[in-house]
Write a protein that binds this DNA or RNA. Structure first.
Lengths: 187, 187
DNA sequence: TGTACATCAGTGAACGCGCGTTCACTGATGTAC
DNA sequence: TGTACATCAGTGAACGCGCGTTCACTGATGTAC
């Protein structure tokens, strides 16, 4: 059942997209190669025509998720003033919707503590994702000074910390309080 | 080879202590029951004389790690003024040593994104750990007002976010920058 | 343009492996008399 | 205080299971003439 080159490339893209959602939603360790292929109605064997290993997929999925979310944020109201765009970014990132739908959200927040135990290539993909966030932040919090960079690093830590804690908490009220407090603090 | 009640209680304590270090250092999923027992020179079978399941151990290990680290922080220079104690807490939490030795550090930072996929009882233990951090912070950032609580929630988000990102990054220089930037921001 | 052959995307069963948990067993400890 | 028996902490092998990866196979696609 050989498929055309275009079909194969399309399958590869779909594998990365499905993996990207599944890893963010359920964690890397909890998602098997069979889960990813099954989500596309395919069987495991074919996976290895496209990727050398599960780990190779993990790195690509992190990159794909990161590019997807940063370009999505960048494309919101591109003509509004920076302060307004910062406010929208904070509202979106620190929203209940983002907390409750990790599979569609920021891979840095979804995978941060897991990634520390993954391979070097996955940590590199994660680092690229973090740097994309900093580039995205530079568009709304610009400046070349050390103070400006400090502010972006502080902001990214607060954003990621807040979402991760809000998700890990069994008490949705405390989770909501964290999101709201950090939103007020960063405005 | 039955052991005395005291021996058995001691074994139980050692299992929790070993698990607490291993889970923080390598992650929950990556540490098996056999790993934990092996760290004490024991075999797997005996584990179930002490715990109903691996999951029961996870919850207890999170609580134990949380109590250990919060009491350690609370006991540092108890007679110094609050501002000074805050500074010491920030320095310790945001240090390279803490980043590089997760197995001896804060369980909230070590397990935050993994915990989102664990059972309800583990998420509850994690929430208790987070609340212990907030109580510890209240000792150096006191106040009953909403603004005071906001500040503590913001601080905990920044601290956890910074350490988690510093650990997940493949670039130790970027990791160090994050720790330093957040330390400067919180002072 | 048509034909013969090589390629390779995807199938589905199999591989070895490590996991959490169970279990029959052991022998020292605890208890009842 | 001494003895007989029950208890149960820890052993080590076994259980079923799901994992990542491999492999012989299939048949449509791509290529060479």
């Amino acid at each position: 059942m050989r498929r055309s080159r275009e079909d194969a490339a399309e399958t590869r893209r779909k594998i990365v997209a499905a993996a990207s959602r599944l890893f963010r939603g359920r964690g890397i360790a909890a998602v098997s190669v069979a889960d990813v292929m099954g989500a596309l109605g395919l069987t495991v064997g074919g996976f290895y025509r496209h990727f050398e290993s599960k780990d190779a997929l993990v790195s690509e999925a992190v990159d794909a998720a990161s590019i997807e979310t940063t370009t999505r944020h960048a494309s919101v109201a591109p003509d509004a003033p920076a302060v307004e765009r910062l406010g929208m970014l904070l509202d979106a990132y620190l929203s209940r919707a983002h907390r409750d739908r990790p599979e569609a959200g920021c891979p840095v927040a979804a995978l941060c503590s897991e990634v520390a135990h993954e391979t070097r290539s996955t940590k590199k993909a994660f680092t690229r994702a973090l740097e994309r966030m900093l580039v995205g932040l530079a568009a709304v919090l610009p400046g070349e000074s050390a103070a400006a960079r400090d502010l972006r690093l502080q902001t990214v830590s607060s954003l990621v910390g807040a979402v991760v804690l809000a998700r890990a908490t069994s008490d949705p009220k405390l989770g909501g309080e964290i999101l709201d407090a950090v939103r007020r603090g960063l405005r």
